[in-house]
């Protein structure tokens, strides 16, 4: 019997048991249980009516079946998971304040894709970027400093990652410590996370007045200026951007 647990094995097992996880890992794990739900700002309260809910469920099932095997993941799940990931702290292998280095990395990490960094967002100092694996889907994450210790994080995935990828008009959702804006452009879906309480549309449009829309900034990464968000009564009303 070659695999009995002999004396040497016992010593090696004891040695390996001395390896301890990072000090904050337990805290980060326990925080996963109390993740707040994602509330899509544009969602209507259809669930309050059982018949409507049933019809919606049947419709959803049919849609999923009709899309199989090309169906993707729900956008809300990505919002929950990525917001939790951001809140819990993460490793950023490439740290740089140079947006052009971030652009170059994004080109390399997304071969064949056209990445479109919003102009206003790209005017903020970058912190860095990394690969983002989510449910076996490969994406990218670019991080920006908004000043005052606040950060914005832009996650990017091919739009077929999601079964309900948003359109070109940003869709806003609240996710715990973050507010998320999500939109799709040229086959890529972007999820921008800003600290809760901030209006992501203002981050996207902050410098719009000084920008020219659609300026090509690299071979395949370009920047797009955003229209200003109309804010009324504290609720952002999204104006569909004109992509040029």
């Amino acid at each position: 019997m070659p695999d009995q647990f002999d004396e040497t094995d016992a010593v090696l097992a004891r040695k390996l048991a001395e390896i301890t996880p990072p000090a904050d890992l337990r805290t980060r794990l326990l925080a996963l249980e109390s993740r707040p739900p994602v509330v899509e700002a544009t969602a209507a309260p259809w669930w309050s009516q059982p018949i409507t809910a049933l019809a919606a469920a049947v419709t959803l099932a049919l849609v999923v079946l009709s899309l199989w095997p090309h169906s993707g993941e729900p956008l809300s799940a990505a919002t929950v998971d990525i917001s939790t990931f951001l809140s819990n702290g993460f490793d950023l292998p490439m740290r740089t304040a140079d947006v052009n280095r971030v652009r170059g990395w994004l080109v390399q990490n997304n071969p064949g894709q056209r990445i479109d960094l919003p102009t206003a967002l790209a005017r903020n100092p970058t912190i860095g970027c990394r690969e983002l694996m989510w449910r076996n889907h490969r994406g990218s994450l670019a991080c920006f400093s908004l000043g005052g210790g606040r950060e914005a994080h832009l996650a990017m995935f091919p739009s077929n990652t999601f079964v309900n990828a948003p359109g070109s008009a940003p869709k806003i959702a609240s996710a715990g410590q973050w507010t998320r804006a999500a939109w799709t452009k040229d086959g890529m879906t972007y999820l921008l996370f800003v600290p809760a309480g901030m209006d992501p549309m203002r981050v996207l449009a902050r410098f719009v007045a000084n920008q020219s829309a659609g300026k090509i900034t690299s071979n395949s990464v370009r920047s797009t200026a955003w229209p200003a968000a109309n804010v009324s009564g504290g609720v952002a009303r999204i104006v569909v951007p004109s992509w040029t």
């Binding site: 996880p21 980060r28 490793d91």
Partner: peptide, 26 residues
């Protein structure tokens, strides 16, 4: 979580990746 982390560390070979894997798992 400690056992899971050790398993993750042996697979990924990097502490940060191991911690990410453990977080994804839980």
């Amino acid at each position: 979580y400690e056992s899971i982390y050790r398993f993750a560390l042996s697979l990924s070979r990097r502490e940060a990746d191991a911690a990410d894997l453990v977080q994804q798992t839980f």
